[in-house]
Computed example of a mutant assay.
Amino acid sequence: MITAGIDKRLLQKRFSQNAKTYDQYANVQKTMAGKLMDLALRAFPATGFHPPREFRILEIGCGTGFLTSQLLRHFPNASITAVDLAPGMIEIAKQRIAGESVDFRVGDIEEMDLDGTYDLIISNATFQWFNQLPLTVKRLFDVLGQQGVLLFSTFGPRTFEELHASFELAQQRFGLPDQERPGQSFYSSSELKKRVADALDPSDYQIEHSESLEVERFHSVRDFLTSVKKIGASNSNAGPHCQRPGVMKAMIAIYDRQYREEDTIPATYHAIFIKIGKL
């Protein structure tokens, strides 16, 4: 369960700095985007919308525009607004989608004003960075049009389970209390549903969820840690999170010894997909 707040300025800085390398390393995020797009097409068959019917889409955390480009392809007549906290990401997205009719905006969706209504609000691997999840869900739900859909993917608590198990053993070796863990913590699907229930009247919406485990393999633990850094997703919790070098070194050795198979080590991503439909 998430307990610490996110330092948004640090998050913005890290994602902007790593925007140019993001696509090279964000393999799981791309897989999640594909699954999210499939869910969007089931909710809104693209053939059902033609001019003059304006279909409005708000994408939150558009990053380098990978999902944005898919939205354009499947909903060519839609009006798309794409928002990201990091200006560096927006610049890459604009290069990818040059000349297309997407309204790109730099901003924090938890703070920025939302205008008009949207048929589809969609977000890939972004909701884990929210500090005010119930309040933000309520704000987004309020700008959904009639029978609109809020659809997002995020990470669940089994994400990086190998890393966390290895780190716990390393802490025990040094006689340290199990008070910290490297990286971000994440809500389970039941916790996410509870946060939604805290925000919305149960008579106003219906909710569905699905989950999957995506395993990426690396030549070394350091390669895995580098990949996390290269997409800007290093620990951005507010407050101190310094780890002892000895603990980190022990964690890497334990991880390698416990999980190595056929000259690679696994890193598990726990993907959760949430669909909230407006009744």
Rank of each mutant, 00 (worst) to 15 (best):
D201W: 00
F141E: 09
F218N: 01
V149Y: 02
Q146K: 12
G183I: 00
V149K: 07
L135G: 10
Q147S: 15
F167N: 01
S203D: 15
F141R: 05
S189E: 07
V149F: 05
L140H: 09
D198Y: 04
V143K: 00
W129V: 03
E216F: 05
H219L: 00
T159S: 10
W129Q: 14
E162N: 08
P157A: 02
A170T: 03
F174R: 02
S203A: 15
A125R: 01
D178W: 02
Q179E: 14
Q179M: 11
P182H: 07
I207K: 05
S189Y: 01
F130D: 09
S123V: 06
G183M: 10
E211D: 12
E161V: 08
R173A: 08
V137G: 05
Q146S: 09
H219N: 05
E216C: 10
R217H: 15
F130V: 03
T159Y: 09
Q171C: 13
G148W: 12
I207R: 02
R181I: 11
R173E: 11
L192K: 09
Q184T: 13
T136G: 11
S123L: 08
K138H: 13
L213Q: 13
S188D: 06
L140Q: 12
D198R: 01
D198M: 01
G183S: 07
A197K: 06
F141P: 10
D204Q: 14
S166E: 02
F174S: 10
L192S: 02
D178V: 12
V137N: 11
K194I: 03
G175I: 01
T136I: 07
E168H: 08
R217G: 03
L169M: 12
V196W: 00
F174E: 13
V137Y: 14
T136F: 06
Y187W: 14
L150V: 02
Q132D: 14
